[in-house]
């Protein structure tokens, strides 16, 4: 397995010389505002061999359960992560809620033998806490997994954060180094997670001296 590299891709007048390098086996997120080209990026790569894209609800299952679906895709059920909710495997797709369908799509993709998986925004289906649980399971997979989103809230669960704007990657680094740049991110239209935003701004006023994500410790730091 190799790094995933795109060089100077132009597509539908939305991607302009789009380039990205993603290290092999890494778990990364691309975050960008509306109309920056995330969905276009997905469309431009969805038919490439060895890449699997997860676009919520855009799927036609060939069988009636996730277990059978894994089977016909030659995925050994005994080798998939034991952290997934096992009840999902035998439940009929027709009886599943929207959430369960999308989760099935994710299981199918990350447990597949494809080297690269792109997952489009799932924030309309799962709350942040539910998403964190999913990230904790799939971070252990030895493949490239890329999550595309408009929210920075998830980014601390990932190994690397890419910021996309106007059809290009404009920043990349470890998430904790990027999410503190409130001016640049706000300008692009991205909202910092509340506690990060509060920390960064309180640091500007010299009221605290480091990032503090916990509300109890924040209050202790301010008024002790």
């Amino acid at each position: 397995m190799n790094d995933f590299i795109i060089n100077n891709l132009n597509y539908n007048n939305v991607l302009n010389d789009f380039s990205i390098t993603i290290k092999k086996e890494s778990f990364v997120t691309i975050v960008g505002p509306n109309d920056c080209g995330k969905t276009t990026l997905l469309r431009s790569i969805e038919n490439i061999k060895n890449i699997m894209t997860v676009i919520p609800k855009e799927i036609i299952f060939e069988t009636n359960t996730l277990e059978n679906e894994l089977l016909i895709n030659n995925i050994d059920i005994n080798k998939i992560s034991d952290k997934w909710d096992k009840r999902l495997l035998k439940k009929q797709f027709s009886k599943m809620t929207e959430k369960e369908i999308v989760l099935s799509q994710i299981v199918l993709a990350v447990e597949s033998n494809k080297d690269v998986v792109f997952i489009d925004d799932i924030s309309s289906f799962f709350s942040l806490n539910e998403r964190k649980k999913i990230w904790n399971i799939i971070v252990k997979k030895t493949k490239i997994i890329v999550y595309l989103s408009i929210l920075l809230d998830d980014s601390l669960s990932f190994q690397r954060l890419y910021i996309m704007d106007k059809g290009k990657i404009v920043m990349e680094d470890e998430p904790q180094n990027i999410i503190i740049k409130d001016n640049v991110l706000n300008k692009i239209g991205l909202k910092l997670p509340f506690m990060v935003d509060l920390s960064v701004k309180l640091q500007d006023y010299n009221l605290i001296d480091s990032l503090e994500l916990d509300t109890d410790r924040m209050v202790d730091k301010l008024w002790n």
Partner: peptide, 12 residues
Amino acid sequence: EEPFIKLDMKNE
């Protein structure tokens, strides 16, 4: 249903 999902700050 979920009005502001997938909208950035400006569009929210």
